[in-house]
Design a binder for these strands. Structure first.
Length: 424
DNA sequence: TTAGGGTTAG
């Protein structure tokens, strides 16, 4: 239903309880036998684990690794599997494995800076830190604290640019730009050379602080040479940074000086214009992108262009974009673009078309429903909006805070304070 | 072996 859902648990080892260890496939090494030291089991080799990680599900590699418990598997093998989990976007599984190993292995497996790096990444990738509870507990034993990621970082025996990047990237993601900037500065003081990723990660922090920061950081980037300046991830990140600062001229200069641009770079610049209310420039750039035929347009390109049409209430442009989408996509309209089209028609005052489009959407998500409900209410079709709330619930979508906002708005428009679903 | 940019409702 919602896109971008986090990885679902692949197995039932939620916490490293003895029951979980017992649920591992039977092996000659039972816990009791191993505890008395009678178990003799050869360790899997690195190439074995690596091969299993490359092909198919990771369960087999995992089983192989856990077979010798409670003897700790070699650090290298743990790292290979942890990294594989992270690479396959299964950070929860990485955290669970780490927790299990630290709980069930005697002595606890040795962790090196690769281990910490991957666990750090897994923590950063998942907001569900509850699943990292065991990691947390493990760290708390080393001295109380609240910030799991920071404690992991401090516990790292060796720090390289990757660990620094991950750490201050985490601070940016969790809304602490000041600390991110300080850590970036500390990395430099420690004599660690930043990588292009360092700049990608630190730029967003600079946009939210002293307005001189972006220029200081960009200057520093330039000193690192053309390889850094021409990195397309860096270019996008720099354009975003200057745009967020409201400095579209600087953003444009970065864009302009980039010889080989990809779709994302174009999109970032168009979005930068839109976010700064420069709709004409945004549309001009979109048309330029279309005509140049140098890079393909993608969903995000159209989202940005549609947002420009919506916000500038340019219905004619919006319709053109719609036509172009129908031709270009041959029937398969991604729900996110369908939603953006509904917004566009509604903002341009064409609620009728917006509803027809909504009604025909092959797939509707919670945003589609909320968009259409809001569209009705904003265009003074309060009753239609409220009726759609009931429809939405009948279709199996629960009303949320966005729905509530629309309903409250409709209530204040009509002066009827009794309306709304009965369970509110 | 690891880290990275642009994304629709309010």
């Amino acid at each position: 239903m919602m896109s971008g859902s986090v990885a679902t648990p692949r197995h039932h080892l939620m916490s490293p309880s003895p029951r979980c260890v017992a649920s591992l496939p039977p092996t000659p090494t039972t816990n009791a036998a191993a505890a008395t030291g009678s178990a003799k089991k050869t360790q899997p080799t690195a190439s074995q684990v690596r091969r299993l990680c490359k092909q198919g599900p990771l369960d087999r590699a995992r089983r192989l690794l856990l077979e010798s418990l409670p003897r700790p598997p070699p650090t290298l093998l743990c790292n290979v599997l942890l990294i594989a989990y992270v690479a396959r976007a299964l950070p929860d599984d990485a955290l669970r494995l780490y927790a299990l190993l630290n709980h069930a292995a005697r002595p606890a497996p040795r962790s090196d800076h690769y281990t910490y790096s991957s666990v750090l990444t897994a923590c950063a990738r998942t907001r569900r830190l509850r699943l990292g509870r065991a990691v947390h507990a493990h760290l708390l034993r080393r001295g109380g604290g609240v910030d799991v990621v920071r404690r992991l970082f401090d516990a790292m025996p060796k720090r390289n640019a990757v660990s620094w990047n991950t750490l201050f990237g985490w601070y940016v993601k969790t809304g602490r730009p000041r600390e991110a900037l300080e850590l970036f500065a500390r990395m430099l003081e420690d004599g660690v050379r930043p990588t292009p990723v360092s700049f990608v990660n630190v730029f967003p922090a600079a946009a939210n602080d002293d307005p001189r920061w972006p220029f200081v950081l960009y200057g520093l980037l330039v000193k690192h040479g053309t390889e850094y300046v021409n990195d397309l991830f860096v270019v996008s990140s720099a354009i975003s940074m200057f745009s967020e600062l409201g400095d579209v001229q600087s953003a444009w200069r970065v864009f302009e000086h980039t010889a080989k641009k990809n779709t994302e770079v174009w999109n970032t610049m168009i979005t930068g214009y839109v976010q700064n209310g420069k709709f004409i420039e945004a549309i001009d750039l979109f048309i330029q992108m279309l005509r140049s035929k140098k890079v393909p347009l993608d969903v995000v390109t159209f989202l940005s262009a549609l947002t420009a049409a919506s916000q500038s209430q340019d219905g004619r442009l919006g319709q053109q974009l719609h036509g172009y989408l129908i031709k270009g996509l041959r029937g398969t309209l991604p729900v996110i673009l369908g939603n953006a089209l509904v917004v566009m028609y509604s903002r341009c005052g064409n609620v009728q078309t917006a509803f027809e489009l909504f009604d025909r959407l092959p797939e509707k998500d919670i945003v589609s429903w909320n968009t259409m409900i809001t569209a009705f209410v904003q265009n003074e079709f309060d009753l239609e909006g409220l009726l759609l709330v009931y429809q939405m619930q009948k279709s199996g979508f629960a009303a949320d805070s966005v729905t509530l906002t629309a309903v409250l708005s409709a209530a204040s428009n009509t002066g009827d304070l009794q309306i709304g679903p009965s369970d509110w």
